[in-house]
Nucleic acid binder design. Structure first.
Length: 310
DNA sequence: AACTTGCCCAACCGCGAATCG
DNA sequence: TCGATTCGCGGTTGGGCAAGT
C-alpha cells in the first residue's frame, strides 16, 4: 500500500493526533479540535443539534466521514449511507413527528428508503432506532420499578448481555433502555454488594469454571479470591469487578453469582426444584437450554422467577 | 458564583445474521 | 449457490445537567 493512500493517511492521522484518547469524553488539548466536537443545543427534551463545521483541524465526525467516504480502510465495510448528506444527532420534534406519522400511515417495509420517502434527512438506521426506542406506540417511559430491576438482574444471569432477549420480557421497554439501566445502575449495585460481601462470603463459595471464556464470572471471582488474601483491599475488589464487568464477562455459571447478591434484597437465582428431575442434571446444560427458544421449561422457570422476586 | 466532576441516556457505530435476487 | 443488501443487535460515545467543591 502506498504511503499516499487514504487509509494510510487516516492511520497516520490517528497515530499523530491521538496517542491514547480516541475514546475520551472530552476533546484532548491537542488532537480533536474542541470546535469540531461542539454542538449547538436547542430545547431540553428534544435537543436540536447542528454540527458546526470546524474552521481548522479535523474532528472525530469529519474523520469518520472521511474514512467512510474513502471506504478503503482495510477490511472496513462500506458505510450504510452517505453521511455527508444526512443529519445526525438528536432528533427535533418536527423530525420525530414526521417519522411517526409516516410510519403510522405507511409502515416501515424498508428502513433504507424510508427517510427519503418521509422527507427526512436521516439515515435509515437512525430512523429505525428513533422509532423503536422512542416513537413506537406502547412504549413505557419513566424509571424502572424495583421489581423490573430485579427481573433484569435475574434475566441477565440467564441470558447475559442479550438485551433484546431481556427486553422481550418487558413490554414497552426497549433493549437500549434496559442496557442503559444495567450499565448505569444494576451493574454498580452488584459490584457494591460484592464488595460488602466479598471478604466474608467469597471463600465459602466454590468457583466453577465450566466455560472456556477468559472473562467469565468465574475468573472475576478467582481474582477476588486472590485479592481477598490481602487485607483491606475492598476498593481493589470493586475495581477488578468493574474492570472485568466492563469487559463484558459472560455469565456461564449463574450459581457462582450467588455471592454477589444480598439475600435480603436480591434473591439468588437457582434451578427450580421442579426442574431437577427433568434429566438436566448439569446446571450448565440447564442454563444453556433455558435460553434456547422453545425450551419447554421456560414458562415454568418464569413462574418460578415470579415467585422468587420480592 | 464559578468551576469541576461524574452520571445519565439518546444516538451512533460496526458487525453478524437474515433475506433477497 | 452466492454475492449484495438490509436488518437487528450489542458496544460505545459524548453532551447536558445535577451534584459537589
Amino acid at each position: 500500500m502506498g504511503s499516499s493512500s487514504p487509509s494510510n493517511f487516516v492511520d497516520s492521522y490517528i497515530r499523530e493526533r491521538t496517542s491514547s484518547d480516541l475514546s475520551g469524553k472530552k476533546s484532548p488539548s491537542i488532537g480533536w479540535s474542541e470546535e469540531s466536537s461542539r454542538h449547538s443545543v436547542g430545547s431540553s427534551t428534544h435537543r436540536e443539534k447542528s454540527v458546526e463545521v470546524p474552521s481548522y483541524g479535523i474532528g472525530r465526525r469529519e474523520f469518520s466521514a472521511a474514512r467512510d467516504k474513502w471506504g478503503v480502510m482495510g477490511n472496513r465495510r462500506a458505510p450504510c449511507c452517505d453521511k455527508s448528506q444526512v443529519k445526525r444527532g438528536p432528533w427535533s420534534d418536527e423530525e420525530s413527528e414526521r417519522l411517526r406519522s409516516f410510519i403510522l400511515k405507511n409502515g416501515h417495509q424498508n428502513w433504507r428508503s424510508l427517510p427519503k420517502l418521509a422527507g427526512l434527512m436521516r439515515c435509515g438506521k437512525s430512523c429505525r432506532l428513533r422509532w423503536i426506542n422512542y416513537l413506537r406506540p406502547g412504549l413505557k417511559r419513566g424509571n424502572f420499578t424495583k421489581e423490573e430491576e430485579d427481573t433484569i438482574i435475574h434475566l441477565h444471569q440467564a441470558y447475559g448481555n442479550k438485551w433484546s432477549k431481556i427486553a422481550s420480557h418487558f413490554p414497552g421497554r426497549t433493549d437500549n433502555e434496559i442496557k442503559n439501566v444495567w450499565n448505569t445502575h444494576l451493574k454498580k449495585r452488584l459490584v457494591k454488594k460484592s464488595i460488602s460481601s466479598s471478604s466474608s462470603n467469597v471463600t465459602n463459595h466454590s468457583v466453577s469454571s465450566t466455560s472456556s471464556s477468559s472473562s467469565s464470572i468465574s475468573s472475576v471471582l478467582k481474582d477476588v479470591i486472590i485479592k481477598s488474601e490481602r487485607p483491606n483491599q475492598e476498593e481493589e475488589f470493586g475495581e477488578i469487578l468493574v474492570e472485568q464487568m466492563a469487559c463484558g464477562f459472560e455469565v456461564d455459571a449463574p450459581q457462582s453469582l450467588e455471592c454477589l447478591f444480598d439475600d435480603s434484597q436480591v434473591p439468588p437465582i437457582s434451578k427450580p426444584d421442579s426442574l431437577q428431575t427433568h434429566g438436566k442434571s448439569s446446571d450448565h446444560e440447564f442454563w444453556s437450554r433455558l435460553i434456547e427458544p422453545g425450551f419447554d421449561d421456560y414458562n415454568e422457570w418464569l413462574i418460578f422467577l415470579d415467585n422468587q422476586t420480592c
